[in-house]
Nucleic acid binder design. Structure first.
Lengths: 224, 224
DNA sequence: TCTATGTCTATTGTATACAAAAAGCATGGG
DNA sequence: CCCATGCTTTTTGTATACAATAGACATAGA
């Protein structure tokens, strides 16, 4: 097995299980731990310098998060996402982002709208550079901003979760420069609809946005 | 503390953590463990005849399920649901049931439709009796049937989860006989729209259904 | 040679022991 | 009488010890 450099962010004063959880989650989302790879408790515990107990509890949490799959009496493996899974997840995401943007139409203040446009601009600027992680971050911020404006905590939580699950594939997807223009235009369309407070247009715009994302992620999976 | 009669369904050959998890979840959903109540590890472990380890792991799972809340260095307490939480959850549920019923319009076979109508009828018959649990069960089956027809595993999982979370309040809600007629008619409307394969009507019908549920649950909370 | 069985090892599942921190209570000083 | 401080108790957080099982490998018999 490749020697991953997992390392705890020991700075915080949280229960170890939470620190381990965040560490492993990051490792999975960033691809340090690859789909299909086994998570062995003793191994991880030694690497992280803790005992098995917090590692086990972190794995339980990853399991319910859908990031690992438990095989009874065999342990946890990093979850593979199949094309069919991705389609399912993105379909759900579409419905929820639609709800989010509609609520945002009602709730978003002028200031929030300005911030949103600024975020869209940051995203555009990032695309010109080479830093994929920064692009992804800017895009996440754009969507989170809309989401937060809904004030619906459950919606925020579920959408964050879904975004995290597909994060690795989004990253892959951003490598395709051909789609960059479209992405920028789609974000702009969402901003415009929000400015007009048109739930219909905003919903339509974001559904198109997610749909495109779905197609291009699936395409990039096939190429590999 | 009231002496709850928690008991493991030892029949199955699952890891204890899963058995404990299901047991505690049932206890919370059925109200045996009430909102605000503390879950103490040793106590539960002794009651269930296991050690603390599986109990702890079960609690971690309940935590990510939103059924308990962890207070650092204090332990877990059964989650309270506030009116605002309920509104949030039901808003999300509305969007997802809408998606589900639209997909069902596309996918549902004639046989499935017949089964659905049968389920609606069972629900109607249950309402005439006094068995609230049976009513709730019949209603759950009706919605699950639609959900399963979508073939979207993620959607099925999230909706099941949401339904479970509000189960206790639905039960409370079913006690109000005044709403029974409406419920039956709403189910019928959903069936009709599905038969006509009209996504628009089906979506509208189920959104109304969820919206009514929201109102009457919140009302019944205020009365208490 | 192939298969079946037995043993050994690696790894999870479970229990318990130990550490640390928070809450409650009592006692003493102001 | 009230408040603060320290002790005690309760409970979680963490580590480790022990049990059980699945998988691999080897060996023996057909």
């Amino acid at each position: 097995m490749a020697e991953h450099d997992l390392q705890l962010q020991t700075n915080e004063y949280l229960p170890l299980r939470d620190v381990v959880f965040q560490t492993l989650r990051q490792a999975i989302l960033r691809g340090t731990l690859q789909p299909g790879e086994r998570l062995m408790e003793i191994h991880l515990a030694q690497k992280l310098g803790v005992s098995r107990t917090p590692v086990r509890e972190a794995i339980r949490m990853l399991e319910l998060d859908g990031l690992v799959i438990m095989v009874p009496r065999k342990g946890a493996i990093v979850a593979e996402i199949t094309v069919s899974d991705l389609e399912d997840v993105l379909e759900v995401r579409g419905a929820l982002e639609d709800l989010a943007v509609r609520k945002a139409c009602q709730n978003m203040t002028k200031e929030q709208l300005e911030e949103l446009k600024a975020a869209a601009e940051r995203f555009e600027n990032c695309l010109k550079g080479e830093d994929l992680l920064a692009c992804a971050q800017a895009d996440v911020e754009f969507h989170e901003m809309i989401c937060r404006a809904t004030k619906n905590r459950r919606l925020i939580q579920i959408l964050n979760n879904i975004r995290e699950q597909i994060y690795r594939y989004r990253l892959e997807n951003l490598k395709d420069k051909g789609s960059h223009e479209n992405l920028v235009e789609e974000h702009a369309a969402i901003c415009r609809a929000l400015e007009q407070r048109s739930e219909e247009r905003a919903g339509e715009a974001i559904r198109v946005h997610i749909e495109h994302q779905k197609c291009s992620i699936i395409e990039s999976l096939h190429i590999k």
